[in-house]
Amino acid sequence: MSDVHVPRLASGVRLHRDEVRARDVLLFPEGALVLNDTATQVLAFCDGVRTFDEVVAAVSELYGGADVRDDVAELLAGIRDQGLMDRDDE
């Protein structure tokens, strides 16, 4: 079961470290989405080069080889539903 689409932030969406509130956010037109630590880790791997499979592998390594595939898929789908991510296969 391989998935080689490349997830990436939509154009005009930026990952930002909000130092004042000690958290990471996605910034986009007129808004901000607060990220938890896991979301930040996953998005850091969504560099527009890594495929979904490679993102999953990189995250899994951070968690001692745990099966994180479903969690990563769910997280990215949630961000995509808000129009903040694109896939290269659509």
């Binding site: 909000d18 509130r21 958290r23 007129e30 808004g31 901000a32 989405l33 607060v34």
Partner: peptide, 11 residues
């Protein structure tokens, strides 16, 4: 601002 904009008590 969207409703999910961060809200944190400050100084």
């Amino acid at each position: 601002m969207t409703s999910n904009a961060p809200q944190v008590a400050g100084q």
